[in-house]
Design a protein around this nucleic acid. Structure first.
Lengths: 234, 234
DNA sequence: GTCTATAGCTTGATAGAC
DNA sequence: GTCTATCAAGCTATAGAC
């Protein structure tokens, strides 16, 4: 807020769109709503971005580059500090998660909406597979490489499924939906990202270490679904 | 497919709505699209359900009761088998997850779309807090009670955050978005729920056990975000 | 229960003045 | 860059015939 008083209309449109897309999804928002929030006419949105979908893509693209850059830097810093012995699983997870907190601390409102948007995309059948792959997989593969070195005898499939569980836990947590507030009767709060961050790396790292161990066969033992009762028809 | 050839139009509308809502979200689908897929006129939808929102609620409600009932039964069966000593964390998680697989095996197509819908709702800022609380929290509290007994010295907040991580991992996994297929270069498949189920309980149980341990103080140690580099401005 | 027909509005997008 | 004005299309929802 020091110098940045003169914000371009393009940025104000992106800000308004980011917030509204995060709250209601791509189809839950109209260009008119966005432009009302941005304080300008609809036609201006089509001047800067030629369609609603292009505006959406611009919202996504605006932050993803910085986010990935900072995460990569966190990982490289970590590896530099551990010249020979690889860093621990927990340290690697922290390098993946901490930058999200750091950015949140920098500009409270903006990143919060962005994370909520990512959570929706990650869990969307329509966009999840495609967009998450396009925007995040190069970085994620880099992190998985580090995890592979920290868990040298790990089966590849266990590694990918473990990351998948991490991804689900992470995006839901940063979506701040308010559910944990209700479930816990108020003793946990969705917007308490420090509380989440104090717990997630330990939780996730334990999962990786439990799953990514050498096996007799490379395939995991199959659970037998024995907990389902025999009266399993309606 | 044995006997059920005569399906009521009400059910055909619900089936079509379930599939389309799961694929594109509430606002991403029109009543016309739904009724085109259901093979009847739009007006019929308003006859059976009086609004689009009511149709959506009916889609949600149709399956949630059976789902929760079977899960509760799985937990009660488990506890019955462990009269005195409480079941393990992993067994409890399996009782929470296995019924999803069981229902999927019963009616492939239907539940698959339903799970994808749940994943979107769970991660929606707009509906997540409210709807997940309304539909699932009674059952979830029952499971958390069982986990509390299996982890007797656990801090309450650790318990709720652990469940939160479980919830994110679980809903994303059952959404089958196709992302893990891309990320893993094809060696893991989103629709291979047996592979997911073989891994998730072990992963999640390890997380619970790592986090839910007695501490010196009840508050967890704060991570210091030390992995973020000093050059953290754009 | 199921359809036709239509009301009343909102949508994404554009043409063109300034 | 920004606005006014407008379009064709599609939207939710209802009234009323059968």
């Amino acid at each position: 807020m020091a110098k940045a008083k003169k914000k371009s209309s393009r940025d104000r449109i992106l800000d308004a769109a980011e917030k509204l897309f995060a709250q209601h999804g791509f189809d839950g928002v109209t260009m008119r709503q966005i432009m009302r929030a941005a304080g300008a006419d609809v036609a201006l949105a089509y001047y800067h971005f030629k369609s609603k979908r292009d505006l959406f893509d611009a919202v996504m693209l605006r932050r993803v580059e910085l986010l990935n850059e900072i995460r990569l830097e966190a990982l490289e810093d970590l590896e530099r500090r551990h010249k020979d012995n690889p860093p621990t699983v927990e340290e690697i997870i922290s390098a993946f998660v901490n930058p999200l907190l750091e950015l949140l601390a920098r500009e409270q409102g903006k990143w919060r909406h962005y994370y909520a948007l990512i959570a929706q995309i990650n869990n969307s059948t329509e966009f999840g597979g495609e967009l998450m792959t396009r925007y995040f997989d190069p970085l994620v593969k880099r992190f998985i490489g580090a995890l592979r070195r920290a868990l040298p005898e790990c089966d590849e499939r266990d590694l990918f499924w473990s990351y998948h569980f991490l991804s689900g836990a992470l995006t839901l947590t940063f979506a701040e939906t308010g559910r944990i507030d209700n479930l816990s009767g108020g003793i946990c709060r969705s917007d308490d990202m420090d509380a989440a961050n104090a717990r997630m790396p330990a939780f996730i790292a334990a999962g990786f270490k439990a799953l990514c161990v050498p096996r007799k066969q490379s395939a995991p033992k199959r659970a037998k679904r024995k907990t389902v009762s025999r009266r399993a028809r309606k």
